[in-house]
Amino acid sequence: MPGMIRRIVAASAVVCVFAGVVADVFAQSTADEIAKYRDALQDGNPAELWEARGEEMWKTPRGPKHVAFASCDLGQGAGVVKGAYAQLPRYFADAGRVMDLETRLVWCMVNQQGYTHADATKTVFGNGSAKRSDLEALAAYVTSRSQGVKMNVPLDEPHVHDMYALGEKMFYYRGGTHDFACATCHGDDGKRIRLQDLPNLTKVEGAQKAYTTWPAYRVSQGELRTFQWRLNDCFRQQRFPELVFGSDASIALTAYLAGRANGAEYRGPAIKR
């Protein structure tokens, strides 16, 4: 309680001193309060509920063939989860394709557990308890096992390198009714939409900070969201058609942003507004 009073006193002092720029002060204190809200969220991230469900799923035989993910190779050997996410996307010779985590999970579900592709991708983004996504839970589990591991996407591998270059092109691609590209909102320092700060993804530090905190529990949605979701919803707001889950463009953009995050410690699943 004394803390609260101190804060009010401090705030009114600020308003008196800078009476001429009251609007800016209010905007600043709003931003401060949002920062405090974000700090308060850090303890007790519900992403752990998804991690627990995903871990259970990872270890349990499932699908028509009754096979566990122990035979699923995420790039570090069959069943190896630790540190795997920090080196994705990567090229998988058995699939003949560069894949991100979500695409690789679907591949294992189809090729090892016997699901149809349609079944494996039926609910890629969950919506409440009635429509839960296995993929989001699995992604939460796998990514949590890369916490503290430095991002190390194999950019010198030719296929990955190629996707990175395509991803960069996609990032700057302007289209749709509003002429928006990823770069429209994420190409400059210190910008925001309304009060939401926008990372500058053209800078290494911006890409590192953003990429290493997905997946994330979104408090406003009460859902855990993966990087595939992040891209999908950005394109919706860009007024583009719908980005297809696991499509080449989605993997190219992921390779571009994950590759630019190389060297930074992975810190997800995080919690966001």
Binding site: G176, F235, F240, P241, E242, A249, S250
Partner: peptide, 22 residues
Amino acid sequence: AEAMLKSSFKAHGQATLDRLDQ
């Protein structure tokens, strides 16, 4: 790059694929 773009999006309601044409 253009082929990748076309195969990576699907029309959804009013947001049809021609929105990708620049």
